[in-house]
Write a protein that binds this DNA or RNA. Structure first.
Length: 580
DNA sequence: ACGATTATGAGAGGAACG
DNA sequence: CGTTCCTCTCATAATCGT
């Protein structure tokens, strides 16, 4: 979401509340030099101040993530360095288990979480699980799997008679190798919400007892090979718990006890992160399994992302009007020049860089030189490769061009000219880093009825305000928003939108997430009356495949800010999110 | 100093093949 | 099954022009 490569800015002006502003000035920008770490010498750790920074840097040098260090220091106020180191090692073990710890953790997980999906749920939403339990139980008794039954219920409606549901399931089973059905199976397996081994293609078998037994048997997460432990399987098609227009959706899931809201949280990052990254993120975020969704199901561009959240997942609704889902519908003017041999209907992922003018010129030359209609297959292939790589569109005879910033805004679900007023380069950078609004709005839509009076939102890595725009479009009033975003340009864009849309609430903007301390959080929480939602996508710079230079994983210079997301989230949740 | 422009593959997953 | 081929990826850094 956010850029993280801007530093030196010490702008802590809230521009709204001068009293609070003072509380936001936490430290001077010049951090003290860090001496070499001497483990033999124990010393007292003050809760704050310059030497706390020194200690923090020492531990960071030892390879601990900053958020972890901060958390350890804050939890050990006034204690010795060794005690803090102990705490750090404990955290580290949780985040980066060895084999024994993995084993025991898995056992704990399974005894705790492996319940049938319909047996649990969010008690705050009783309307989400009407008397379906009985229906499910009956159908399961008839030999159908929970997945099938729940899919049928979702598809046919809760009032559907049981025999009709059975018919539907039977029909579904007849669908040969249906992609969507297979996906649901894969998805549920992968999500570990139900462990029905496979969808039985045959009709009701008599082994429902066996099925039922299996349902209670946890799927071992590894079968002996340790590499499998950290591998997070991506669903195909990538529809998460469901997307608009697709018939199959999952409405129930089991959240780990520690993850339940409120306050709610919503975390986002690239789906195709290096191996093990999502497993680690999930371990930190209370073992909630990611929901992987491709925004291609919401707009005309691919955008494969993982979302970890503790929101309810039933009764989601999509924003209206539905955005165009194909290139031709989204950009009708390109149709005139679009050659028939370019079969693209979707854009690839919108990124922060665009194709060069030199490239489009090379393509023009290549096509003119070819002088065939259509060009030779070799030329076609070369041109198409570049068009796909750079998301080029046809704007003239033999002429392609990269997307304009306003076209990207449109595809990503933002209001027209949302990013107007800043340099073209900055617009591309900000847009390449943001949420796809319709996708996120679909997930957040369940909050509309829960918070009719509006929400207090803690928005991390806000960028150009994808979360805020999504909530606004969903119809959730924004009461108070504490937005943290490093880029001054992006903060300006968000504030501009805030004013243009005539928001009634209060927007407070801070810059550096690393310097948002518990005190600051508490202060604003008290001022607002607690946070209802903590939302944000941490930097993907070191996770994205597009990065050829520093794809260093979650511990990378920018992506390690995830640990600040966790630190802040964990603090807000530990206080219950409620202040008086 | 700032904005614009440009060149720069690895790595992972899936499809297609045998 | 394994193997090969195919496709895609919220980017960085050097350089240029003003």
């Amino acid at each position: 979401m956010a850029d993280s490569d801007e530093s030196g800015s010490i702008d802590w002006n809230s521009e709204d509340d001068r009293e609070i502003e003072e509380a936001c000035v936490v430290a001077s920008s010049s951090r003290p030099r860090t001496p070499e770490f001497e483990p033999s010498r124990a010393m007292e750790i003050p809760a704050s101040g310059s030497s706390a920074f020194r200690i923090k840097d020492q531990f960071r040098k030892m390879g601990f993530p900053e958020a972890m260090v901060v958390k350890a220091i804050e939890g050990n106020e006034g204690r010795s360095e060794e005690e803090i180191l102990d705490t750090l090692l404990t955290y580290s073990a949780i985040g980066n288990d060895n084999e024994a710890e993995r084993q025991s953790r898995n056992e704990m997980e399974h005894s705790k979480d492996n319940t049938l999906i319909y047996l649990s749920g969010d008690d705050r939403y009783p309307e989400e699980k009407p008397d379906q339990d009985e229906i499910v139980a009956v159908l399961v008794e008839m030999g159908y799997s929970e997945d099938e039954v729940l899919v049928a219920l979702q598809r046919c409606g809760a009032e559907t008679p049981i025999d009709e549901l059975a018919d539907f399931i039977g029909a579904a089973q007849m669908v040969k190798e249906s992609d969507a059905l297979a996906a649901v199976n894969e998805f549920t397996q992968w999500h570990n919400v139900s462990s029905t081994t496979t969808y039985s293609r045959q009709h009701k078998s008599c082994n429902h007892i066996e099925k039922k037994r299996k349902l209670l048997v946890p799927i071992p997460k590894n079968d002996g090979r340790e590499e499998d432990m950290d591998v997070m399987h991506l669903p195909n098609p990538m529809i998460g718990y469901g997307v608009p227009g697709e018939p199959y959706a999952i409405s129930y899931r089991t959240l780990p006890e520690a993850a339940r809201g409120p306050p709610y949280f919503y975390y986002e990052n690239v789906a195709l992160a290096p191996k093990g990254v999502w497993a680690k993120i999930s371990r930190f975020l209370y073992e909630v399994q990611p929901e992987f969704v491709d925004s291609a199901y919401f707009c005309a561009a691919n955008r494969k992302r993982g979302y970890i959240h503790n929101l309810p997942i039933s009764n989601r609704f999509a924003l209206k009007p539905l955005p165009p889902r194909t290139i031709h519908e989204a950009l009708p003017s390109t149709k005139k020049w679009w050659p028939s041999w370019d079969k693209r209907t979707k854009f690839n992922c919108l990124q922060t860089c665009i194709g060069s003018a030199k490239l489009t010129e090379r393509i023009r030359k290549e096509l003119e030189k070819s002088d065939m209609e259509p060009p030779s297959l070799v030329v076609q292939q070369r041109v198409l490769d570049e068009c796909r790589r750079w998301n080029l569109v046809w704007v003239g005879k033999n002429k392609v061009a990269p997307l304009e910033p306003d076209e990207m805004e449109f595809l990503l679900g933002f209001p027209r000219d949302h990013t107007r007023g800043v340099s073209r380069t900055d617009r591309y950078k900000a847009l390449g880093n943001t949420f796809q609004v319709d996708t996120v709005a679909y997930h957040l839509s369940v909050l509309k009825d829960v918070y009719p009076e509006g929400m207090n939102v803690l928005s991390l890595f806000s960028g150009i305000g994808g979360a805020e725009v999504a909530l606004h479009k969903v119809g959730v009033p924004l009461k108070n928003v504490l937005s943290i975003e490093i880029s001054e340009i992006n903060r300006r864009i968000l504030r501009s939108w805030w004013e243009q849309t005539d928001q009634k609430g209060t927007l407070v903007e801070l810059d550096d997430v690393q310097r948002v301390t518990n005190d600051i959080l508490d202060k604003w929480a008290r001022n607002f009356g607690g946070f209802d939602l903590i939302i944000g996508g941490s930097p993907c710079n070191n996770l994205s495949g597009s990065n050829r230079v520093s794809r260093d994983g979650l511990e990378g210079a920018h992506s390690s800010l995830f640990f600040d997301y966790f630190r802040i989230l964990d603090h807000v949740r530990s206080t219950g999110g409620i202040y008086q």
